[in-house]
Amino acid sequence: MIRITPGAVSKPLESLKVKTGDWGAEYPVIEEEKCIGCGECEIFCPDLCIELIEAGMEKKGEKEKIIRVAKVNYEYCKGCGTCSVVCPAEAIKMELKDIYRGELK
């Protein structure tokens, strides 16, 4: 027995149950110390799986500033590498997943 809607109308954002994180051979690694929190990777990411998170406070003279760094949601990252290409601080490196390393041996 399956349940279907009249006219194949779908509910919103049910794509979230599709975990595309296992698609790619590579995955991005963000070097937090290099990340300048500019958000370039977030705005480019085609899989909407990078967001800027607060990683502490920084003193700049008199003012305190929130330090933001990029964080990848690996559940959805397809490993396309776009973030690594657009990062102006070269803070994102693409690395081969372990399972693929195994095959190369």
Binding site: G7, A8, V9, S10, K11, P12
Partner: peptide, 8 residues
């Protein structure tokens, strides 16, 4: 916000 015209 529903999705109309999904493919099956």
């Amino acid at each position: 916000p529903l999705t109309f015209g999904s493919y099956a």
